[in-house]
């Protein structure tokens, strides 16, 4: 009943929820980002428990090591870390809480009352299989999505450069 795995799951769940609460309630952005980093780290742990080891690595490297760093850079560049966030009115907070809670209830109801069938295809779940599946161009493969994502990343790369460029008048100003 209560084995080490279940305890770990509980631990990870509590830490992630608490960190998430910290993310949304902290007024200072840097604290918020740190809590986000905590959530992402814990999620990586969850992936291990869910037999997706490769994703753990991806999560830490890309999500934490790329995205969160980028957010921190943006915070530095826009000076958001120096000023505190403007507080929203209490009734807005109440409304947001109510709506989120309502969403939670509806989703919970949906999840709990939906019987989900399990399917066992009996394939391997290793990194090699992941790679093969990603580049498989048969009907069950995802090579098209892979290519599209590559294009998306290219577009984002170019787009970001174009958008973040200093314009003429900004240079002269």
């Amino acid at each position: 009943m209560y084995n080490i795995e279940t305890l770990f799951i509980y631990l990870l769940s509590i830490v992630s929820v608490l960190s998430a609460v910290l993310v949304v309630t902290q007024r200072r952005i840097i604290r918020s980002v740190s809590a986000l980093m905590m959530v992402l780290l814990v999620t990586a742990g969850m992936y291990v428990i869910l037999n997706a080891e490769f994703l753990t690595g991806v999560q830490v490297l890309v999500y934490i090591g790329g995205i969160v760093i980028l957010i921190i850079f943006a915070i530095m560049l826009t000076g958001a870390g120096k000023t505190n966030d403007d507080e929203v009115d209490t009734h807005k907070k109440l409304l947001a809480f109510a709506v989120s809670f309502l969403f939670l209830l509806c989703s919970t109801y949906a999840i709990v009352n939906t019987p989900i069938k399990t399917v066992d295809t009996g394939a391997n779940s290793s990194v090699r299989a992941l790679g093969l599946k990603l580049l498989d161009y048969s009907g069950t493969g995802h090579v098209l999505a892979f290519e599209v994502i590559s294009l998306l990343l290219l577009a984002v790369l170019i787009g970001a450069i174009v958008v973040a460029r200093k314009t003429e008048e900004a240079k002269n100003a």
């Binding site: 409304l95 947001a96 709506v99 309502l102 969403f103 509806c106």
Partner: peptide, 9 residues
């Protein structure tokens, strides 16, 4: 976003 979400709910 609120209207979006409320509509969905």
């Amino acid at each position: 976003t609120m209207m979006f979400l409320l509509g969905g709910l």
